[in-house]
């Protein structure tokens, strides 16, 4: 079966997010033989990114480029997306399960009266060729496969799970500019405070160095940050560390907080309460560093070190620093 699929691409800091390429990969599977993968990029000064979408497999690209779209605005982005929907009339739409996608996708679903399957980590088909979408529930303590009962449909995909297509240098695709409809907006953006300038988002990080109560203070996160920096990763935290105000709730990993699936998860001073394990146990490789040999975190860790994180973590940072310099 061939379908027309629209990918809602997302730019951050002037570049496309990795999850947008992953969404094109998912869309290609869903489109089937002879199907079409369209992609839309919305924002200000973003048309120049269209080429990257083509290289990663989009067949045609729509761009809504307007100063009103400089920052994510729920109503403005929705209006822009609707204008593109009318051009493309897709059978299915893919978003990243990101701050944007989580806000924009349900708006579109409600407006279309469409079904939406959120936070998808893989896709396959049943015996009749129908698409099945796998998603974690209870923060990954269980999994479900879902299917749609009507068209059009909407999916958000979790970053870091669905492989992108191989980049095809020199591949091009037609780019259509769609006018921003300039709707009246109820909400006004007063200010955007960028707390994360230069820092990687947890959901997309390949490496996460995470701290728990064992980190003992806000200052105690310093060695974790240094290790994350060396590895090009992000810093996360357990609920215990957040509740103790060692760090911001934005860093919390667990059933409350974020669910993450990095290549490497380094848990420092985290005991491993079930609600934390739910948020990280789908990571590919897990390291646990904890003073308490009985800590449940060791039950899910590929490598465990019983020891003082303040001794071990800086030594580990030093190891990586030396290795990466040579």
């Amino acid at each position: 079966m061939s379908r027309t699929i629209l990918v809602v691409a997302e730019a951050k800091g002037g570049v496309l997010r990795q999850v947008s390429y992953e969404a094109i990969g998912a869309a290609r599977t869903a489109a089937g033989d002879g199907g079409t993968v369209a992609a839309v990029i919305m924002g200000s000064d973003v048309t120049r990114l269209a080429g990257d979408l083509a290289v990663y497999g989009a067949d045609c690209i729509y761009s809504v480029d307007h100063s009103a779209l400089t920052h994510y605005h729920p109503e403005a982005y929705f209006a822009a997306l609707q204008a593109v929907m009318q051009e493309v009339r897709p059978d299915g739409v893919f978003f990243g399960h990101t701050a944007w996608g989580k806000d924009l996708a349900p708006q579109l679903a409600a407006a279309l009266g469409a079904g939406q399957i959120s936070d998808v980590i893989s896709m396959d088909t049943d015996d009749s060729g129908e698409l099945l979408f796998t998603r974690p529930i209870y923060a990954g303590k269980a999994m479900e496969k879902k299917k749609f009962m009507s068209t059009p449909w909407i999916v958000t995909i979790r970053p870091n799970n669905i492989p992108p297509l191989a980049a095809e240098a020199g591949r091009t695709a037609p780019v259509t500019a769609v006018a921003y409809p300039e709707p009246p907006l109820a909400a006004v953006i007063r200010e955007v405070v960028q707390n994360t300038a230069g820092k990687m988002d947890l959901s997309e990080a390949k490496v996460i160095v995470s701290g728990g109560r064992g980190v003992r203070s806000a200052e105690g996160f310093k060695p974790l940050e240094e290790l994350a920096d060396v590895l090009g990763g992000a810093v996360g935290a357990s609920r215990g560390a957040c509740d103790a105000a060692y760090c911001d709730y934005a860093l919390q990993i667990g059933q409350t907080g974020k669910v993450v699936t990095p290549e490497l998860y380094i848990a420092c001073g985290i005991s491993g309460a079930i609600q934390h394990l739910a948020g990280m146990s789908q990571s590919r490789v897990i390291i646990a560093i904890n003073k308490d040999p009985e800590a449940p975190i060791f039950q899910v860790a590929d490598y465990g070190i019983v020891g003082d994180l303040f001794e071990v973590v800086p030594l580990l940072t030093e190891q990586f620093k030396q290795a990466l310099q040579t």
Partner: peptide
């Protein structure tokens, strides 16, 4: 309903791995 659950399952259990001993 616009969607339906086709399957429900538990993810594979992780196994405890290696403990690394010695000085830090």
């Amino acid at each position: 309903a616009r969607t339906a659950r086709a399957e429900l399952f538990l993810p594979p259990q992780r196994q405890a791995g290696k403990l690394i001993s010695g000085e830090p």
